[in-house]
Each structure stands twice: as C-alpha cells, then as structure tokens.
Design a protein around this nucleic acid. Sequence first.
DNA 1: ATGGTTGTTCCACAA
Length: 261
Amino acid sequence: MRIATWNVNSVRARLPLVSAFLEKHQPDVLVLQEIKGEDDTFPRAAFEGQGYHAEVFGQKAYNGVAILSREKPYNVLRGLPGDPPDTQARYLEVTIGGVRIASLYVPNGNPLDSEKYTFKLAWMDRLTARARVLLATEEPVLLAGDFNVIPTAKDVDDPSGWEHDALYAPPVRAAFRALVNLGYTDALRTLHPDDPRLFTFWDYKARSWERDAGIRIDHVLLSPEAADRLTEAHVDRAWRDEPQASDHAPVIVELSCWALR
DNA sequence: ATGGTTGTTCCACAA
C-alpha cells in the first residue's frame, strides 16, 4: 500500500502537478494539506477522472485538508474532537483498506508569544489526545501531514535561522516528541537515521531551494501495527523543482500489504 | 534587523 502526503499550497494552483504525481506514482492514498478553498471549489472531477475518491474538508482561502484514495473511504471524521465551534479545516480522518489515515495540518503558530502560538500548542494537545485514542484501537494508524514542527537540529539546514520561530520552539518540539513517544514511529527518520538533508520544505524566499536551505516539517507517524509493515519512506524532491511548485515536497511511504482487512 | 515569494482575495493576511 503506497501512501503519500503533500502540502500543495492551493490544490487549484497545483492541479497539474498533483495530477502528474498521481499518474506517475499511482499511490493508493494521497493526503493533501493547504488546499485553500471551500469544498465546492475542490477539483473533484479531475481526480475522479483519474480513478480516485476524494474526501474533502475545506474552508475559504486558508487551510483545508483532503484525502484521495483508490478505494472508497469510510467512517469519515472532520476536525479534531474538542475543536472550537469556529474550527479551522485542519484535520480529516478516514479508514481505507483497513488502515486509519489522518490528513493533518498543524497551525504554523508564528509569531511566538501570540494567540496563534497558544492556539498551536492547544491544537497539538488535542491531536495527542486523539492519537492516544487511535493507539488504543490496536489497528494500523497513519498520522500524515504538515506538522509545522522541526523535530531536531538534524532536521534543519541552519538551526540558527529558526531559533525564534514557532516551528522550532522547544515547547513545540516537546509536544511533537510527546506525541511520538506515545508509541508512534517517525517513518522518514526511522528509515533514514543519518540523512542530514532529509527536508520537505524550502521557503519560496531567499533562494532557499537553490541553496538547499530546507527543513523537515512534513511527517508520517505510524502506530505499531502500521510500523510493522513499513518497507519504504522517502521525500520526492523532484516536485519542489518543477515550475509552479509548492514550497513543500511530497513524502511517500510503503506498507507491505496483506490481509489488512 | 530586514527583506525575500506565493496564493487567495479584495486588501491585507497567512505562510
């Protein structure tokens, strides 16, 4: 089972690239973040024409997550339990082929010491509570998306440039670590323990891509039942080099697939 | 410390 995650920074602006990605890699599941539009603006017909179901949780202009899949998704959950009534579209969870899969987009949280920062920490607390519930099911679970967290100094080209940023703040990194330490496996880092350039995001500004001044903030976390089946994980950097690229590259993982249902 | 870029939308705001 091939599963990919990609922060596309507007699915409408990125439709040609996303379609090319599906065509090339034929993933069983592609989870998207920052689709940046309401559900009725999602290019559903284009993806259905390529043989994919689309589950969408969007909002106007900002945020928005979606899950494309070959098989029909079931038991759809929109938003995190405990979200405020004016919830931002940042979390979508479905079951596909016996695997519980979440597409998530953690708040950016900048600047530090703002309401956005406290909202990020509160959101991560709700995510951790949800992750604990999912672990208890003892089913294969995959939490994938843009976590907006640089886990360690190994995950950033130049740590000094991020010292005062909400993606690298110690409490944010501690919250991510606590989530992983519930019992999840960081698929990318586990399979590439010593790669010093395992990045998924390069800012549009300051020629970051050309300098490979990247960070690793897009993650795939696996429950033990999913981690048992992990055979492959990598960043597909080529999509960051395309014309009209997103500022994120997709992450692709493979789970060996037998009798998951 | 500042400025650098992209997308959505309507004008700044978010990233």
